[in-house]
Structure formats: structure tokens, C-alpha cells
């Protein structure tokens, strides 16, 4: 295990020494995503807004729109959008750069990492829009100190899962087919459209309620809502569980990636 961690340290050092390449790739990813589209960056706002419209309509028909529902929906969908973009892009980050992988040596982790960071830039910009919405709706955001913690955990989850999917897709192309389904299942299991209280205040078995926070997105969504909407945080033990899982996902994703990357060139 200690050897694993020396590897990790070496990896972090290597990534840091190639930070300029990382930067260039992040910029490349951002440029290419919206190249030759008329709306450009606006798409990262239009998409969630349309989604929010659809869900709001749907929930309205079901008669489930009440008091806080709409602001829960808006914050949930924007926060989830980052995860969903990363999951969608992850499978292609290695397979789609086969040329680069086969022809030049550089830390392979940079490819999925640059994708995750490029999407982070989008997310941060859209967060500003959400903030404007929240202020207009009369909320006073609080708990600012939590924002870096949430962002770090959010990036950790996106990165960890993306690393795993990117590497696995080199060996099994089924991964890119399954990702959509997996994203949808995760979406409904996380409190995106609903408040976490729907689960914690329900009559579910206590162990199921505890398991709810094993999903790092539960804690992360709660955290963002506390920051943006001033909602009370769930108990610290639950938050710690969620955020701990976020870190674990990052570490596991990185370890799997490092194990699989040795034969990328052979397989591509």
C-alpha cells in the first residue's frame, strides 16, 4: 500500500510538472466544445434551463410543485449538469485521443483530467447565473466557507468516475453505451429533483437512510443548497460520510486508471 502512495505522489509531481500541457488541453477542450455553434457557451445555460422547464412542467402536472420545489430543482439541475457532462465525455477521452496515446509519451491522466477541468470552468460560469437567480428569488446565500469544500468534493467525484470510465472504455467499449443508463440511475438516486429530506424524513429503514449519504452527490447537493439557499446542513456525520466517499472515489478511480494505462497503446 505504501508503494501505491509513492506512486500517487510521483503522479501528482508529474502532473504538476506538466501543468502547462494541462492548461493548454483544458483550453482546447473548452474551445472545441462550442466551436462553430452559434450559441457557444450559452448552451451550458440553455441545456439546464430547458431541463428545468421540462421537469417543472412535469412536476407541475403531478401537482408536486410547491414552495421550495422550484429553487431545489434549479440548484439541483445545475449542480448535476457538471456530473452529467463529465460522465458523458469521459468514455471518449482516451479512445478519442488514440493518436496522441500511441505516438507520444505524457501522463495519460492529463486527458480525462483536462476534460473534467474544462467542464469545471463551464460549471463555475453557470454557478454565477444560478447565484443571480438565487439573489433575485430573495435568498441570502450563506456558509461561503463551505464552497471550496463542495467544489473540491464535486471535482473529486467527477474526476474519479471519469478516470475509471475513460480507462475501462479502452478495454470494454460497452462502457460508453452503459454510461448514459448509469448517469440516469445515479440522477434519480441523488436528491437532484427532490430535497434530501424527502428521504431522511420518510419511513424508510434507518440503514437505507444512512446508505443515502454513501452517495457523495447527496452530501454535495445538500452542501450547495446550504450555501446558495441558506438551507440547514444535514448532520455532520452524514456530510462527512458523503464527502469521504467523494475522496475515496477519486483515489480508487486514479488507482484503476494507473493500473490500466500501461497497456493503452497496445489496446488502441
Amino acid at each position: 500500500m505504501s508503494r501505491r502512495f509513492t506512486h500517487m505522489r510521483a503522479l501528482i509531481k508529474e502532473l504538476f510538472s506538466r501543468h502547462e500541457l494541462l492548461h493548454i488541453l483544458v483550453v482546447r477542450n473548452i474551445k472545441i466544445r462550442y466551436k462553430e455553434s452559434v450559441l457557444g457557451f450559452l448552451w451550458s445555460l440553455v441545456n439546464p434551463i430547458l431541463l428545468i422547464g421540462i421537469y417543472a412542467l412535469f412536476l407541475g402536472i403531478l401537482g408536486r410543485i410547491e414552495g421550495k420545489s422550484f429553487e431545489i430543482l434549479v440548484t439541483g439541475v445545475f449542480v448535476w449538469q457538471y456530473v452529467s457532462l463529465c460522465l458523458g465525455d469521459s468514455a471518449g477521452t482516451i479512445v478519442g485521443n488514440a493518436n496522441l496515446i500511441k505516438k507520444s509519451a505524457f501522463p495519460r491522466l492529463i486527458l480525462p483530467l483536462s476534460m473534467v477541468l474544462a467542464n469545471l470552468v463551464n460549471f463555475l460560469l453557470s454557478l454565477v447565473v444560478v447565484l443571480v437567480f438565487v439573489l433575485c428569488a430573495g435568498h441570502i446565500p450563506g456558509l461561503w466557507l463551505w464552497l471550496p469544500v463542495m467544489l473540491l468534493s464535486h471535482v473529486a467525484v467527477c474526476a474519479g468516475v471519469s478516470f475509471f470510465l475513460a480507462a475501462a472504455n479502452v478495454y470494454f467499449r460497452d462502457v460508453q453505451q452503459v454510461t448514459g443508463l448509469l448517469t440516469m440511475a445515479w440522477f434519480f438516486l441523488s436528491p437532484v429533483l427532490y430535497s434530501h429530506e424527502l428521504v431522511t424524513h420518510s419511513h424508510l429503514a434507518p440503514w437505507l437512510k444512512a446508505a443515502f449519504f454513501l452517495n457523495p452527490m447527496t452530501g454535495i447537493l445538500c452542501g450547495y443548497r446550504s450555501i446558495l439557499l441558506g438551507y440547514p446542513l444535514p448532520p455532520m456525520s452524514d456530510m462527512a460520510l458523503s464527502l469521504g466517499m467523494a475522496g475515496l472515489i477519486l483515489i480508487l478511480g486514479t488507482l484503476v486508471f494507473q493500473r490500466l494505462e500501461k497497456r493503452f497503446s497496445d489496446e488502441l
Binding site: R18, L21, I24, K31, K35, K102, K103, S104
Partner: peptide
């Protein structure tokens, strides 16, 4: 390595952007 010329290029980026991309891949 000149294993395959222009392997690192992205078709949508300009020559200038690709020089920076490729150069930084080469270290």
C-alpha cells in the same frame, strides 16, 4: 519522436494553437 507527423494536431484548432498543443505534449 517523429513517429507520426502531426499526430497531436486537432483539426479544429489553428496552426498556432496546434503548435502550442503539440509543443507542450513534447515537453
Amino acid at each position: 519522436s517523429l513517429l507520426e507527423l502531426g499526430a497531436g494536431f486537432h483539426p479544429d484548432l489553428t496552426g498556432r494553437e496546434n503548435i502550442y498543443l503539440c509543443g507542450s505534449i513534447l515537453g
